[in-house]
């Protein structure tokens, strides 16, 4: 029976699988009976009013908020059972773009990226340097790698955060408002980049309220409402 279930999951190809999950944050119920399946390589938008739980949902997906009941499986990891020590290893399967960037403010962009690679087991200097210039080129940030985060504009910091999320070629990219600080042209480029990455098999899940972007780069869209989520037709927004 178990084998059959695994087989079923393989066919479904789901990298994000949430069944009847309830999520609490400080005894405050954020989600109830949450159900969501996102498959490998899918590109999905997450919308909703401010405070509707977009960030909380993403935090749940990267195990910052623990699930109270139900079942959440992300990239073959069961978040119901995950121990605190195993969270670091689990997060290596994800690329996370934080709403507030979360760059290490005490070092340069290059050192920020190097930290992630070293932390996730990269040893060879040439490989590290090569990968860093690859990701920086993909977000057009080659010229600021020796600057510290506070020397960059909001948009540049945002792109640095995206570059960091791409480093380990993650199975899933979770992005919280990745275009929030960018002008329309740069937003466009970033979404194009993320779409391209998703077409190569990485699942991309973006929380945003930039409807212009959604309308331009149409994709499956999910909305947070009333402690749950619903699928919405992008044309009706």
């Amino acid at each position: 029976m178990e084998k059959y279930t695994n087989f079923q999951e393989k066919i479904n190809n789901n990298v994000i699988e949430i069944q009847n999950a309830s999520v609490y944050q400080n005894e405050h119920k954020v989600f109830e009976n949450l159900n969501l399946n996102i498959s490998k390589g899918e590109f999905v938008y997450l919308i909703g009013d401010t405070g509707s739980g977009k960030s909380s949902l993403l935090k749940t997906l990267y195990a910052e908020i623990r699930v109270s009941s139900g079942k959440i499986i992300i990239a073959d990891t069961n978040l119901n059972e995950i121990k605190h020590k195993a969270i670091a290893k689990f997060r290596r399967k994800l690329g996370i773009v934080f709403q507030d960037f979360q760059l290490l403010t005490d070092r340069t962009i290059y050192e920020n990226l190097k930290f992630v690679l070293k932390a996730t087991g990269w040893k060879k200097k040439e490989e590290i340097n090569e990968r860093i210039s690859e990701v920086l080129t993909s977000v057009h940030l080659e010229n600021v790698k020796d600057k510290t985060p506070h020397q960059l504009s909001g948009g540049e910091q945002q792109r640095a955060a995206i570059a960091r999320a791409l480093l380990n070629r993650p199975q899933i990219i979770l992005a919280d408002e990745p275009t929030g600080n960018l002008d329309p042209e740069k937003s466009d480029k970033i979404i194009q980049l993320l779409k391209e990455i998703s077409s190569r098999g990485t699942t991309v899940f973006i929380a945003t309220h930039d409807y212009l972007i959604i309308k331009k780069h149409k994709a499956r869209t999910i909305k947070c409402v009333d402690k749950g989520i619903i699928e919405v037709d992008i044309n009706t927004i």
């Binding site: 969270i87 997060r91 996370i96 979360q102 992630v116 070293k118 932390a119 996730t120």
Partner: peptide
């Protein structure tokens, strides 16, 4: 004074020992 840096390190996949 470095608590946010420590938190960030954990969020990007660094193990406790590495931090």
């Amino acid at each position: 004074s470095k608590r946010f840096l420590i938190k960030t390190m954990g969020l990007v996949g660094a193990t406790n020992n590495f931090i």
